[in-house]
Design a protein around this nucleic acid. Structure first.
Lengths: 152, 152
DNA sequence: CGATGGTTGTTCAGATTTGAACGGCAACTC
DNA sequence: GAGTTGCCGTTCAAATCTGAACAACCATCG
């Protein structure tokens, strides 16, 4: 029977600002990617993760955890990217259950073309507006929450 | 022909932490609300906004801006909430085009019942893990971005 | 008043997400 | 090595979101 602990004014302001801003920024990014490259944000993030992975390939499950998507959502999006020739599927040599998503040269090329415009948005609306101190504090805060959510 | 400005390591870490954490937290909140009240997060946010509004009512457009949803998504969700008896629709007295979404007593009651559990999650994973300084910095950062996105 | 342009909310088709159920394979035990 | 348990990715139906098109209404101006 713990007492409900409401958020005080400062805490609530922080939470509402975070919630609203993350949605607004998501919307802006989606708009930019769709206009520039015909990609959704989840699709772009898949390409980014693959590009950064050794051999430009990742197991579906790892990829899903990386981009924070459900297994079925990832299956769907990798299917779209495969149709577009940006990603290929290979069966995992070590584990016949597994599937490796592999970035194709065309995928890598598209990513290189699109990334600058995407990062420009991230800069324009978020990074460039923050002081070094705010940047540091935000990273620290986000990592604490991420760690807590990943472990649960 | 501006040179592409990549993010340095610190900046990229901040962005990735923000992106990942906002998705993880969203997922956790969705899970909690669905299990506790059968509500989606967007639906919960609609109830919150209405509860805080004068007369517990808001124009559809204002509501859509408040919760950061598209017009059609709001139409859909208000429809669900109306079916559940948590919200009612009234034509706006001032403007025959307008529709007022009004929180019903049942909606207010459900919100009071659900809010503590929801806020407990927000505390557990975000607010309570942040120092006062981090909280302040995050609010400041989010507000700058929000202002920039709202004005554009 | 009548015309024009902008706003409001809904509708619709198509795209995407969700979560449960499933078949196939791996790992471990006895 | 047969049995059991669990993981892997996909499939499916249902729910939700998106963006364009639309009808109804407001506001302004001549």
């Amino acid at each position: 029977m713990t007492q409900p602990r409401w958020l005080d004014q400062t805490e609530m302001a922080a939470w509402r600002a975070f919630l609203t801003t993350s949605h607004l920024l998501e919307r802006r990014i989606e708009e930019q990617l769709k206009a520039t490259a015909g990609l959704t944000h989840p699709q772009y993030e898949i390409l980014v993760r693959l590009a950064a992975a050794p051999g430009r390939r990742l197991r579906m499950t790892e990829l899903a955890e990386g981009v924070v998507a459900s297994k079925s959502a990832l299956t769907y999006q990798v299917g779209r990217l495969e149709e577009a020739g940006l990603v290929e599927r290979t069966t995992c040599p070590d584990d016949d259950r597994g599937v490796l998503a592999v970035l194709t040269p065309a995928g890598a090329e598209l990513l290189e073309k699109v990334a600058p415009g995407h990062l420009e948005i991230v800069r324009e609306y978020l990074i460039d507006r923050l002081s070094r101190e705010e940047l540091r504090a935000m990273t620290s805060a986000m990592r604490k929450t991420e760690a807590a959510l990943r472990s649960g």
